[in-house]
Design a protein around this nucleic acid. Structure first.
Lengths: 190, 190, 190, 190
DNA sequence: GCCTAACCGAGACGGTACGTCGTGTCTTAAT
DNA sequence: ATTAAGACACGACGTACCGTCTCGGTTAGGC
């Protein structure tokens, strides 16, 4: 029987808060463990003891805060509901403040396979799955083609969005969101 | 009359070559200016004199090497031609060796606006534009809807691909490429 | 209550030893912090943490080693005793090996006021004071004029010596030492 | 027959002037060839072509400026004349501005044998010799002992002075100068 | 008065060391 | 046993100068 780690919750919170603060202040590449420890009033060791690196800290900070599963509305109108979610995502990406954390975690993801899995499973999948569920309901309601590969379809909606955002390949506006949904819908609708 | 900067071409090549070598050996996060300079037999100052950081070096190395515009084939069959290009891109992303550089430059892109612009204009746009041209030809040939927003359509093809690759959201196989093209085509075709 | 600086004595010794070694090998101007750190198996930061520069390191190395107060003999014959000490100093200056450290610290002294004070108080003064004491005893014994300014008199003995050494203004031999003492004695004796 | 070097006098002057300026502004250890060249509006090569290093530049600047042989007065009173010259030297050393150059050249002297010789022959010896001449005249006039080693005697006068100055071993005042001369005179006078 | 070498300014180059920063580990003292 | 604090070995950072090396442009003899 393993002894439960006598972990200091006060320190944990201070570290996660400090990390998010510093992230928005200095940007991810300039974020350091040293600074987090100092800001949190915590020894560096305490961070290294419980996390594998700054990526892991940020990930926990994120999942800890935005833990809501973001259930998708079902108004009965598939196109409208997709508009709602795509518009929301576009808005989040367009806001430098909000997209900072996503950007941060995405960077780390690119060179840390293990972290990438966690991010995918804990942050990305829940979001995509809720859309997938809505699409499935749409199929049942006859608003989406029965044969659709739903995983692929979800990517058809979010992929272009991430692409434009990451590669800065164009403006992220509400009109863009609507156009994207409309184009995707022509592949989705029966 | 401004004096032409008497830059040493031999050094420039040595630096770019060394950068690409080291990139494939150690990966981007562990790539250092110091190592590039040592490998190239060059003073660090010579790198800092002409580039803003390792991101800029890699970018130039990339654009310098793969400068070919990658003209798209036009067999008359739009779907087949798109399959060709998407399959090729999937193959590139699936190969750890080849995708290392793209991954590298994408990382830097995420936190360097200026670099991002250069990457977009010199690497990304030429690729996307060639596909856009093919789509336009497809419209003329009646294989694509006349009203399509071609920029959006191109993103519809490549976005999901980047999304899956960056976020490791699924396998990158030839079958995936084909399914993606088929799904996109149902939004493209008249 | 201030926390005692938990300084690593092993590192301190390794640094001082390495510094003295390198000093005799390469000479002071070519002595670098980098080399000291490497030789000592120590991070550069550890040197910068505890010393202000290479001058300070050498000073501590010197005071740490040659901490003996060098008590002057008193045979009852003032002239003979002064000969002894001046001959010893001449011999030290004439030996390239031994004078290397003195030369080194003197260089740094010339452009570092704070260091100069430390050198004066910790290395120079003890030596001069022991001679001053001997002179005072000489006065009591009637071998030196009662009215002598002893500080000045000490400088009269050592000044010419340093002058000849620093400015390379003549040979540093035993005969020179004796002549110097004799000349000075004619100003000292009643 | 060697061709006369077609040296640019304008550049030479600019370099020497710049060197002296910078010396008084930044101090000798922070004086760089690079800065001299920039200040003088001259290529670095031009300096390296004609001098062996910053020590040599300063030396030439010094000998070029203070070329006056500084003939010693002979009022018939040896003690008074020595007071004059020692007071003047003390004053020079006490003035931070004036002593900067001497200090600079002395530093370089300590680790450059060849330069040391030049300094000794071109700057130091002329000064000492003029005092030596005065002492010789003093001997003829019966104000100095006939048997004196004049080289040693000169050092007896200047040595303590340099010692006090270099090692910062006490104040450099007019009273000090007078006391020093008086003490030395008691070794000089018959 | 022309020709042609040497000299000039400018500054890029391969290097070395600088002093700083952050890493991840280790040690200490205090809960 | 965990914590805050921070020293430690290490390695890269970006900068400053070093002394050497082209580059054109200019300048001063020798013809």
């Amino acid at each position: 029987m393993t002894t439960t780690p006598r972990r200091n919750e006060r320190s944990r919170r201070a570290i996660l808060d400090a990390a998010l603060q510093l992230l928005s202040e200095t940007g991810y590449p300039d974020l350091t463990i040293e600074a987090i420890a100092a800001r949190a009033g915590v020894g560096k060791q305490t961070i290294y003891r419980w996390w594998r690196g700054k990526g892991a800290v940020i990930l926990e900070a994120l999942t800890d805060t935005a833990a809501e599963p973001a259930a998708l509305p079902d108004t009965g109108d598939l196109r409208a509901d997709l508009r709602t979610v795509i518009r929301a995502t576009v808005a989040e990406f367009a806001d430098p403040k909000l997209s900072a954390t996503t950007r941060a975690i995405t960077i780390e993801t690119l060179s840390d396979e293990a972290l990438a899995e966690q991010v995918r499973d804990q942050l990305l999948r829940p979001q995509l799955d809720s859309v997938k569920d809505r699409l499935r309901a749409g199929q049942a309601a006859g608003q989406a083609r029965p044969g659709l590969d739903l995983d692929l379809t979800v990517e058809l909606l979010f992929g272009p969005l991430y692409h434009r955002w990451l590669l800065r390949n164009g403006p992220l506006t509400e009109a863009y969101a609507d156009d994207l949904v409309d184009l995707a819908m022509s592949a989705i609708a029966p």
